[in-house]
Amino acid sequence: MTSSVIAYARSLVKVYGEGPTAVRALDGVDVDLVRGELTAIMGASGSGKSTLMHCLAGLDKPTSGSVVVDGEPVSEMSERRLTKLRRTRVGFVFQAYNLVPTLTALENITLPLDIARRPVDADHLDLVVRTLGLTDRLGHRPTELSGGQQQRVACARALVARPAVVFADEPTGNLDSTSAAEVLGFLRRSVDELGQSVVMVTHDATSAGYAHRVLFLADGRVVDELREPTRAAVLETLGALTGPPRGSA
C-alpha cells in the first residue's frame, strides 16, 4: 500500500435486514482514497453512496470486507476505539443539524479538541477561521447564523483538529447556490492549500465538479470513475448510468 492512499476499502459488503427482505446496499466495493484529494462519491438514491461513506467513516459496520483509515483497521474496531478515531482522525460535515445549539460558533469549532482534551492550535484555528470568513461570527449561536454560515462553521470544526480524512455527507444539500459555492470552494481550498483529504457524498453534478476525482456507484458497486471532472462530464457519466439526469431529488 503506498502512502498516497489515506483510506481504502476492500470487498466491502453491507446487507440490511435478513432473509428474503434483505437488501445488499454494498455489494463488494473496492476503493482507494488518495491523500490530499477531494473525492466525490455520486450515485442515484439507493445506489449505496451514503452507506459507503458511513462504513468508511466507521459510523456503520460492514457485513463483510475491510476498511482501513490512516492505517487503522476501522471495520474491526470496538465502539470505544471508534469513538477515539472519530475524535482524532476523522472529521464530519453533515447535511444539516451540524452544530450544537447551546454552543457558540467558536465552541462548536473547537468541540472535537475539547472532547479529546487536546490543546487548540491558535495559529491553525486562526487560519481556518479566516479562510472561512468566520472571524466576526465566532461569538454567535447557531440560530443566529445563516445556513451557509452554519455549514462553514461545520467545515471549520471538521478541519480544526487536522483529521486524516474529512467526510462530508451532502454538505450543501440544504444551501442556496451561492452559499453552496462558498462551502464547496472552501472544501477544495482546504485540500489544495492545507493538504487535507476530503470525501464528499453528493447527488449534485455541480458539487461533484469541485472534486479531484468522482466515484460513481450503482446497485452497491463502483461502476465508474472520473478524474478532474467537469460538470458536463459528470452529467454525461450519470446519464450513461441511469438514463436522463435527474433533478434535485
Binding site: 477515539k84 475524535r87 472529521g91 464530519f92 453533515f94 443539524y97 468541540l111
Partner: peptide
C-alpha cells in the same frame, strides 16, 4: 437524539 448523534460523531465518548 440528533444532537447526541452529532456529538458522538465528532468523538464524544459514551461515558462523556
Amino acid at each position: 437524539t440528533r444532537e447526541i448523534g452529532l456529538l458522538r460523531a465528532v468523538g464524544l465518548g459514551r461515558l462523556q
